[in-house]
């Protein structure tokens, strides 16, 4: 078990186990001096200053809103009611299964037909050979 594994295992920690305030206490006791300097450097909030949503974040938010609106509109266009939507999906799956089954049965049928034709041809050939042998034997007998 490596340190990296321990770190990764901690990623799965139940959120209720993390309801601590260790880091808040650090900040409260002014132990996080480095972060104060950093906060100033990245133009973070100072007392009384308003939070301005940066362009990159605003873009991300707007894109997400557009994406969710588009998904919702698409679903409503196809089928307004949720239960109908579910039915449509089930129908689609059923249709696909039927299509696949039709193809499989078609292939099986063709195989059976082809096999039968081959069997008939082979049988005819072997019967023809047998008849020839019988004829030869009769001819030989009558000659003698």
């Amino acid at each position: 078990m490596t340190d990296a594994m321990l770190v990764n295992l901690m990623s799965g920690l139940d959120i209720s186990l993390l309801n601590d305030n260790y880091l808040e206490e650090d900040l409260r006791r002014n132990r996080a001096i480095k972060s104060r300097k950093l906060l100033n450097r990245i133009g973070g909030l100072k007392e009384g200053r308003e939070f301005v949503i940066k362009d990159s974040l605003q873009d991300g938010i707007e894109q997400e809103i557009e994406r969710q609106t588009a998904i919702k509109e698409k679903e409503e266009k196809i089928c307004p009611d949720l239960s109908e939507r579910l039915e449509v999906r089930v129908d689609n799956v059923k249709r696909r299964i039927n299509r696949i089954w039709a193809i499989v049965t078609g292939i099986l049928t063709m195989a059976v037909v082809a096999g039968s034709v081959v069997a008939i041809i082979l049988k005819k050939k072997s019967s023809a050979k047998l008849l020839k042998q019988i004829e030869r034997a009769r001819t030989a007998q009558s000659a003698t």
């Binding site: 808040e24 900040l27 972060s35 906060l39 973070g44 909030l45």
Partner: peptide, 23 residues
């Protein structure tokens, strides 16, 4: 409700802490 004000309020309250964690 997808109101930006919520985001602003959240940042005002917790940005310092998040910077501390990430740093």
């Amino acid at each position: 409700k997808k109101n930006d004000l919520g985001l602003s309020m959240m940042a005002e309250k917790y940005e310092k802490l998040l910077v501390y964690i990430v740093a």
